[in-house]
Design a protein around this nucleic acid. Sequence first.
DNA 1: CTAGCTATACTTAGCAT
DNA 2: GATGCTAAGTATAGCTA
Lengths: 221, 221
Amino acid sequence: MVKNNPVQGRRKIEMKKIAKKNNLQVTFSKRRAGLFKKASELCTLCGVDVAIIVFSPAGKVFSFGHPHVESIVDRFLTRSPSVRIFDACYNIVETHRDANIRELNAHLAQLDEMLEVEKRNGEALDEVREAGRRQWWWQAPIGELGSNELQQLRNALLELKMNVGKQAELLQAAVESSNCWPFLAPNGVGTSGFGCEGNEINVPSGTTQMYKFDQDLYLDF
Amino acid sequence: MVKNNPVQGRRKIEMKKIAKKNNLQVTFSKRRAGLFKKASELCTLCGVDVAIIVFSPAGKVFSFGHPHVESIVDRFLTRSPSVRIFDACYNIVETHRDANIRELNAHLAQLDEMLEVEKRNGEALDEVREAGRRQWWWQAPIGELGSNELQQLRNALLELKMNVGKQAELLQAAVESSNCWPFLAPNGVGTSGFGCEGNEINVPSGTTQMYKFDQDLYLDF
DNA sequence: CTAGCTATACTTAGCAT
DNA sequence: GATGCTAAGTATAGCTA
């Protein structure tokens, strides 16, 4: 039944955060769907790969990806494994943007040094090529990898492991020097994350993953 | 000047890959812009965080992210910090499923294309510099982090370590079962990755990182 | 490639269910 | 929260400059 409404139909809205909580929720749903649809169309029309990740205010995660969010994010993040550790802490440090630079401690200076060495020696283009090659081999069926590729795989793991060790040592030292915990029980305020998400849209799209790791370890890198 | 065109204005198009290469390029540009705009609006209207990654047919990477692609991708991937390795396994298995060499070659071709583009347009040094800039957060004084943050940091590291161990075990097993090496000397072919991308839209978005580490270890996970 | 133009296809705000 | 509606607001396909 149609009310005698003066204005029925879409109305222009200000481009700022929607105030009415209910409206916001509805708009979020609708526009999110619209966004994913657009992305899907872009994929089919232009034959490209797209990944979208949306964190709702409620903390839910909605993702769209063609062919997979994972693979695209992976391609995007093809860089040092150790960067992942850094990024894992990104948000933490982000909240300390105003930190006082002069407090730079010796341990972090070491990291600086590493970076410098890297800048000096790094052969950018070679690394690009190299990285491309690596991405290639590990996408291949493992059964078809030659011993050489397996060796590279192994080296990648070694690298990862080692970097974890290095980063951990440095941070461990820093942590200790800040004497914040003698024997903190790792009760995981920040147990690492897990992702929960509600996927939507009926397109070959993002997948859902949920992880959570128990932890009951000591920091003994 | 207006021609006497029978149909001037938008026309409906089939939802399949655009045939005419030129049209495809234009449509890609326009729709990509539209997609990013929609995303941006979603951010402001609903106060949510969104990241979009698009791989163009040419291999270029376009990304949108609020506040940063990195931070969002990070949150998304908070399952395992060693995603690269994890995803490596994932892709290996995935590809193994239909071991289609043609597809793999396509991937390779795509990568080659990326590299070409990168070689032509990429400014390695600038990228390195850019990467350095992004380093700011871990150069920040760790001493100013609260104990809570430090604990979270610690937990993140614990998680990383543990996952490295897990992934390594899995791969180690796979590697061994393929009996390719008795005592391979780890000569470190596999330096780490890189990231290249062509960012667009004037929003705080993605960055580039480059790393490389010496290694001289044994595989003793 | 980037930038209009125009008419039309598509999206969606506010309501009601 | 999720639909469905309707009219108004936007995005854009095909061209041209």
